[in-house]
């Protein structure tokens, strides 16, 4: 199993006390599979994704990614896991403002020590970024930026892509185009995909779907 989440719990402190966001959430994902994670706004989808990415720590429960227990990893270990095993795509793209498109595309692959210029060039071509390689992030449209973010995630040939509402800030046409590209590339490369979305229509395009409600996951 590439990803195994068992009995995960997480709460946040607020002005009115602690709010339990996850109460024993569990899921599993194999290599090459794609899974949509749906739920209402504020249901904890992004929190679950951040926990899987090792960006945050759970209160209890276990997460195993590619055979590694995240609970046993320190900050540096979790950073290595993100570098070498995961690809992250955020709703707000989160490109690095100081780097141009070409450097953004290659950045994670290079810090993971797996930079393959030919693969990067192929990705740029597939994503329609050839003509934009020397532009700066703020010079791109939202759709263009999201394509760069997807290319960046795939350039390092990750085993698992975690996407947090990747089309959430795009219009419907641009969102569909970006999702088509991502799903096509994921299928081609055999990468697993866990995608957070609140759109049932988009979720339906993935192989499986789980729904988060009341802090627990239920298969749909």
């Amino acid at each position: 199993m590439l990803l195994a989440v068992e009995d995960l719990a997480k709460s946040h402190a607020t002005g009115e006390g602690r709010v339990e966001v996850l109460r024993g959430a569990s899921l599993a994902l194999d290599a090459g599979q794609s899974l949509a994670l749906t739920g209402e706004s504020g249901s904890g989808k992004s929190t679950l994704l951040h926990l899987v990415a090792g960006l945050d720590r759970p209160d209890s429960g276990r997460i195993r990614v590619a055979g590694q227990d995240l609970g046993g990893l320190d900050d540096a270990g979790r950073a290595r896991l993100r570098r070498e095993t995961l690809g992250l795509v955020f709703q707000q793209f989160n490109l690095i403002p100081a780097l141009d498109v070409a450097a953004n595309l290659a950045f994670q692959a290079r810090i993971a020590g797996r930079h393959d210029p030919a693969w990067c060039a192929a990705l740029a071509r597939r994503l329609g970024l050839d003509a934009l390689l020397h532009r700066w992030p703020e010079e791109l449209s939202g759709g263009q930026q999201q394509r760069v973010a997807i290319g960046r995630a795939l350039a390092a040939r990750p085993r698992l892509i975690l996407a947090d509402e990747p089309t959430g800030s795009l219009d419907e046409v641009a969102g569909e185009a970006v999702l088509d590209l991502m799903l096509g590339l994921v299928a081609e490369t055999g990468t697993a995909l866990l995608m957070v979305t609140h759109s049932l229509r988009l979720a339906g395009r993935l192989a499986g779907r789980v729904h988060l409600a009341g802090g627990r996951l239920a298969p749909c």
């Binding site: 900050d75 540096a76 403002p97 994670q108 810090i111």
Partner: peptide, 16 residues
């Protein structure tokens, strides 16, 4: 933070 957060998410530790 907006400059540093993506780099952190991509695999550089906060200490680094």
């Amino acid at each position: 933070l907006p400059q540093l957060a993506p780099v952190w998410a991509l695999g550089l530790t906060r200490a680094r």
